[in-house]
């Protein structure tokens, strides 16, 4: 569903992504992990067309990203920080997104109910708490039944109940054949929902493994220890290849 070939990205003189290549199919939850500044968010931004690659190609559903925006109709996105204009009401934000996405789309109204978005419909964004804004942002990402959902730190700032709803939704969508890409620092959360771990370090993919295989290769039974083992053993993707 997503194919990346030799992706390089620089911000000024700093090379943030160094020759990234990978392929991701549908019906999976892929976690992009790594320390701060490793290039996770930049990778997602390149897929979303928010940052323009210096070299390399990205294909989404076999369509090459080349400055066009049409491919984004297949993608739902939840940024790390909620970002709606303060003086708009919640219902106006939802209407706006519906207006942009098109009115002939089937909406997932069930999630709106589960996340209690209806109760804040007439409130202005500026009156919402950080958690409420995150709930709205999350609903906006899932609302349009897109085939690919990209979530940047999805549960950061969410209350435990909303966090559980989101995790359940991710697993449900995976069952329905969707591709979900998440970045997260919460290893316990990734352990539950992800099938595949892409670990980034210093702009490169340090390792890219199916979770079960990672456990098998490292002989560890929890993700934290498996990642730590990989890091200390120094087995990188390049070395494996």
């Amino acid at each position: 569903m997503i194919k990346i070939e030799g992706l390089k990205k620089k911000f000024g003189k700093i090379e943030v992504l160094k020759d990234i290549s990978l392929e991701i199919g549908n019906s999976s939850v892929v976690a992009v992990m790594g320390p701060n500044g490793s290039g996770k968010t930049t990778l997602l931004k390149c897929i979303l067309g928010l940052a323009k690659a210096n070299e390399g190609n990205i294909y989404v559903k076999d369509c090459k990203i080349n400055g066009n925006s049409a491919y984004k109709k297949h993608i739902g996105y939840m940024p790390q920080y909620s970002c709606f204009p303060d003086n708009l009401k919640v219902k106006e934000v939802i209407e706006m997104i519906k207006d942009i996405r098109g009115n002939n789309i089937v909406y997932d109204t069930e999630l709106i109910e589960k996340l209690n978005i209806a109760e804040m419909y007439n409130k202005q964004i500026g009156q919402l708490s950080g958690g409420m804004k995150q709930r709205l942002s999350c609903a906006a990402a899932f609302l349009f039944n897109t085939e690919i959902i990209i979530l940047d730190e999805p549960t950061a700032g969410l209350d435990p109940l909303s966090s559980e709803i989101v995790k359940t939704k991710i697993l449900e969508d995976k069952q329905n054949g969707k591709l979900i890409i998440i970045t997260s620092h919460i290893v316990s959360e990734v352990e539950v929902i992800a099938d595949r771990i892409i670990y980034m370090l210093d702009g490169k993919i340090y390792f890219d493994e199916i979770k079960e295989k990672l456990y098998r290769l490292t002989g560890k039974e929890n993700l934290n220890k498996a990642i730590a083992h990989k890091m200390t053993s120094g087995e990188t993707r390049g070395a494996e290849q």
């Binding site: 925006s69 049409a70 909620s82 709606f84």
Partner: peptide, 16 residues
């Protein structure tokens, strides 16, 4: 202050 909002819009099928 609209940067993140523009970022969200750019992730949708909308031309820059």
């Amino acid at each position: 202050s609209s940067r993140e909002f523009m970022e969200m819009l750019l992730a949708m099928p909308v031309k820059r």
